[in-house]
C-alpha cells in the first residue's frame, strides 16, 4: 500500500480509542492511488460498529486536506480480525489501559478466553466478568492481583 497515503492515514484515530490509528487497528485493507485520486478500502471491526461512518468521513477529510480526491469503500473482502492489529497498536492499547487481544488462533474454543493479563500490573490472576463491554470490541475483566477492573480488546 502507498506509503505516503498510509502516513496520512496514521493521523486518523479510532474515535473510541484515540491512541490507536486506523492503520494500526488494521481496518484499512487496501489503498489504490491513481494520480490525485485515492480509493481506500476499509472493513469494520464488528459488522454493527456504529463508528464506521464516522471513521469513513475522517479518512475522507484527512486525505482531502492533503489535496487528494478520495473515495472510501466498505468491504468484507478481507474481513477484519484482531490479529491485524499491529505490534505498535497492541503496545498503544496496553499503555491506554486496554489488554491487547491474544492471537485469534486460540479462538476456536472460547472457554479459554477466561485468561488475559492485566494491562496495569501484568498480573495473570484475572477473571472474565463478561464477554460484552462498553463497546462491541471490548470485554470486562477483573484482576485479583491489583484488585482493579479492566477491559480487554476482544480477540476475533
Amino acid at each position: 500500500m502507498d506509503e505516503k497515503i498510509l502516513h496520512i492515514l496514521e493521523t486518523v484515530k479510532d474515535p473510541e480509542i484515540p491512541v490507536l490509528s486506523l492503520v494500526d487497528l488494521g481496518v484499512i485493507t487496501d489503498v489504490v492511488v491513481e494520480g490525485n485520486n485515492v480509493l481506500v478500502k476499509m472493513t469494520p471491526t464488528f459488522v454493527g460498529c456504529p463508528a464506521m461512518n464516522y471513521m469513513k468521513s475522517e479518512v475522507e477529510t484527512a486525505l482531502l486536506q492533503q489535496g487528494f480526491e478520495t473515495r472510501v469503500e466498505i468491504s468484507f473482502e478481507k474481513p477484519w480480525s484482531s490479529d491485524l492489529i499491529s505490534e505498535k497498536g497492541k503496545a498503544a492499547l496496553k499503555k491506554y489501559g486496554l489488554a491487547p487481544p491474544p492471537s485469534n488462533k486460540i479462538f476456536t474454543d472460547l472457554e479459554i478466553l477466561e485468561t488475559s493479563n492485566c494491562p496495569r500490573c501484568d498480573g495473570s490472576n484475572t477473571e472474565m466478568k463478561s464477554p460484552f463491554g462498553p463497546t462491541l470490541c471490548r470485554a470486562l475483566y477483573y484482576c485479583h492481583d491489583c484488585k482493579e477492573a479492566f477491559e480487554q480488546f476482544k480477540p476475533l
Binding site: V47, C49, S130, G133
Partner: peptide, 20 residues
C-alpha cells in the same frame, strides 16, 4: 448490569448484521 450490557451488545450486533 452485565446481562443488561450483554443483551444490549447482542442487540447492536444483530441490528448491524441485519443492515449488512
Amino acid at each position: 448490569l452485565e446481562e443488561d450490557i450483554a443483551f444490549s451488545s447482542m442487540a447492536q450486533d444483530k441490528v448491524g448484521q441485519s443492515l449488512a
